[in-house]
């Protein structure tokens, strides 16, 4: 495949994200990376579950966690997952404008999630004195949820960079895999959040 075919393809293939060897490699490598990420988050979940009873005299999960905010966060992230599916739908239809639009909506929803999370942490720290250093529970909570939040920040930066970089030149076989794996990453963030809201928040207040 020549450079011309990759950068300005005459006709988009059915799955532009896997049309080049680089695309195939990225697709496979990124899925494997997510397999590693699964172990990483499992280790953090395990640590959290081992330490969520170690309050060190502080408030317990049941006394602190408010479900309405968590519900809003869940909805924001879940919807952003759907919008990035729409983006991938338009990627395969070679509709670059809509791809950019849905990716941008994904970013906005992600920012909303992040704002809620920052507010939540701020609320726990100022209202309950529940910090990273106050107990083993605190350390484990902020590390698990914070790692997820860090992934959100990285994902937002990544998708934004993609949107800005490619705004002027449209879709081609070089950047299609990049969009695709960024969207996989975003879905994975949502997958982890499903376990966080179940294990940390719902089981926390139970």
């Amino acid at each position: 495949m020549t450079e011309q075919d990759i950068m300005n393809p005459k006709k988009m293939p059915l799955q532009p994200e896997k049309a080049t060897l680089e695309g195939k490699n990225k697709f496979l490598g990124f899925w494997f990376f997510l397999g590693g990420e699964a172990v990483l988050f499992a280790s953090l979940f395990g640590t959290y579950l081992a330490l969520n009873g170690s309050l060190n005299g502080g408030k317990s999960a049941e006394e602190m966690f408010g479900l309405p905010l968590v519900f809003i966060m869940t909805m924001l992230l879940l919807t952003s997952s759907l919008t990035s599916v729409y983006a991938m739908h338009h990627l395969r239809n070679n509709d670059f404008k809509r791809l950019q639009l849905w990716m941008s909506i994904t970013v906005i929803l992600g920012l909303g999630f992040l704002a809620c999370e920052i507010y939540e942490f701020y609320h726990y720290i100022t209202d309950y004195g529940f910090t990273f250093r106050s107990s083993a529970f605190g350390s484990a909570f902020y590390t698990l949820v914070g790692f997820h939040g860090g992934h959100v920040v990285f994902g937002l930066a990544w998708i934004t960079a993609l949107i800005v970089r490619n705004a002027k030149r449209g879709l081609n076989l070089y950047n299609a895999p990049k969009y695709y794996i960024a969207s996989l990453y975003w879905h994975f963030i949502d997958v982890v959040w499903v376990f966080i809201f179940t294990v940390v928040y719902l089981m926390g207040v139970l």
């Binding site: 496979l28 997510l34 397999g35 172990v39 499992a42 280790s43 979940f45 395990g46 081992a50």
Partner: peptide, 22 residues
């Protein structure tokens, strides 16, 4: 096929990790 094999492999290792720690 390969993505699922290694992704579920990771999930399995992760499951053992959680089980061990809990």
């Amino acid at each position: 096929g390969m993505p699922s094999l290694l992704f579920y492999g990771g999930c399995f290792a992760g499951f053992l990790t959680v089980l061990g720690l809990v």
